[in-house]
Design a protein around this nucleic acid. Sequence first.
DNA 1: TGTGTTCATGGAATCGTTTCCATGGAATCG
DNA 2: CGATTCCATGGAAACGATTCCATGAACACA
Lengths: 344, 344
Amino acid sequence: MAEITIKDVASLAGVSAATASRVLSGNPATSPGARARVAAAITELDYRPNAQARALRSTRSDSIGLLVSDVRNPFFADLAHTVEQAALSEGYVTLLGNANERKEQQDRYLDTLISRRVDGIIVAPLGDGSGSIASLIEREIPTVFVDRTVDGIDVPSVTTDSEAGIRQAVEHLSSVGHTRIGYISGPQATSTGRERFAAFTSAVADTGLSQDPELVYFGDFQAASGSAGVHALLDLDEPPTALLAADSLMAVGALAILHKRGLRIGTDIAMIAFDDVEWFALLNPALSVISHSVEDMGRLAVEMLLQVIAGGTPESVVLPSELIIRASSSSPISPSAGLRPRKN
Amino acid sequence: MAEITIKDVASLAGVSAATASRVLSGNPATSPGARARVAAAITELDYRPNAQARALRSTRSDSIGLLVSDVRNPFFADLAHTVEQAALSEGYVTLLGNANERKEQQDRYLDTLISRRVDGIIVAPLGDGSGSIASLIEREIPTVFVDRTVDGIDVPSVTTDSEAGIRQAVEHLSSVGHTRIGYISGPQATSTGRERFAAFTSAVADTGLSQDPELVYFGDFQAASGSAGVHALLDLDEPPTALLAADSLMAVGALAILHKRGLRIGTDIAMIAFDDVEWFALLNPALSVISHSVEDMGRLAVEMLLQVIAGGTPESVVLPSELIIRASSSSPISPSAGLRPRKN
DNA sequence: TGTGTTCATGGAATCGTTTCCATGGAATCG
DNA sequence: CGATTCCATGGAAACGATTCCATGAACACA
């Protein structure tokens, strides 16, 4: 019951707490004899140093915070895994938070992370620079943004160049004959939502496709909004013949509704999703995607965070994205496409 | 730069640190005047209490550890999300660890969690009761097992009754004419791996299907082993006409290879997976699954952990599993099934 | 007015470490 | 052999909060 402290170890080993501490931290100013006896006492008592006390005294907690919108999103699950493993190999544990795309949850979690005195924070931020993000900066807490950025906040980041992938996707769809592409957008409160929407808009304009504003549905990066988006877009008087979803979750929601409405993907309607997910290739027809490397993103984020913790100011990194064409978008536009099934 | 402590708050408010602390913790022995001035000082200084110091003195850290095998597994991602949200709503933050189905990683993480003095641990355990699991018990650290158990370790748990679902699956496959079912098993180092394997074995025997030991491939719950399993099973002299995978990740790996080998799922070979995943229903043909409720599991685990922390000893819970039949397994056995494609 | 009670408050101890500083014995050097 | 350096060691302070205990002001009651 009673906590075993370093004093217990020290007295069993016949040394002072100071010496025991030195042995524990590998301080060279210790005799071999003391080292041996302390080591023996530690295993004998199964002593585990109290990380709280250690953190209090040494002002480092050997923990980092990771705040994403939702680990159920395969993209963030991958990221969480990579970050956690990379951090662990450097001796840090990871506190995971889900903001669920809600600013108040993000702020709440950031507050907790600040209170816990984590050594650094990796966050896929949401909203503007107000609220707890500002506290982070003001307190000079080492922070790295992943996937997203915040306007006006100067923090190292690892992001994806969505522009290139989106442009390739639009041009590809245009090349197989589509002129009305429906876009299921991410929320404009996120930088990725804005950037991808802007990329879509400009690519559509440059390619000479329809710029009908009704062809854009604003979702929230969660599956349900993808479903709602498909309903909205297909119920237009002139529905699109191809769909582009700004993340994998909305794509899943969209696919479910396409199935339910009896539309054959790749034949009746083309579909492309942002974010690659292993099993998208297993769908029949396989889903075309805009792919980017989550592993690189996670690894780099941890690397950069460690640099910031060490006092450096690493350069932000922008990773490439690229279109991977699969069966869901490669057939030429079907003659029946564009007709509303209910009218058949 | 300099940390803002409770003393700064106290002196700005013109009270002692003791009084400031009382205001902070809502202790009634404080005057309205003091409360107001302390509150003002807190916002003025943007003071955040140091959770480390607080934890040191009060011996509770308001954090729990969650150790799963891999958050990239949708089942554990769901679980992580549910647990994190449930814990947060009770004022706890969640430390997430990935053991990657490796005992040494599990032990390493448990050690860290013990050192951090988390208030409780939720773990999907691996292996026997040796190593750090034993330390957990000995130190009486509140622990709840999820999904899996460990023989001989008496800890409250939330698990699934795999038996029922597996039996339904085997009977269903038998009813549509299959006699040789290939089983891609989980590792025998996990209770779920063992339990599901045992359920399969006995169901096959009871139904009078082939008990050929070659029809079982032992994987490790990760995607790659599902792929390897399909190769091994299809290369048998008498390959199975139906496959049952013990988790979703191995099912994904299996599906990928089935595709690659040109086998039509539901026609050339039937397939059923343990664990429901939203998008399994989106596959074409949709995948039959054995489903169980992850939300219930996560919610109950947190609930039970809080009870243990409060000194209680909650009863273990076993959740039901059930077969959901979709197109991947519902067609009668095809005449060509069972033939090795390469021999055609 | 004196005694007793209530109650907000401050001082000081405490949690388990790390780390600064002083000490004293051994070793080295001239 | 005396003086100097080296180095392992222990005592004590510090980290930032909480909490026990004592204090003294305010108030009530007889």
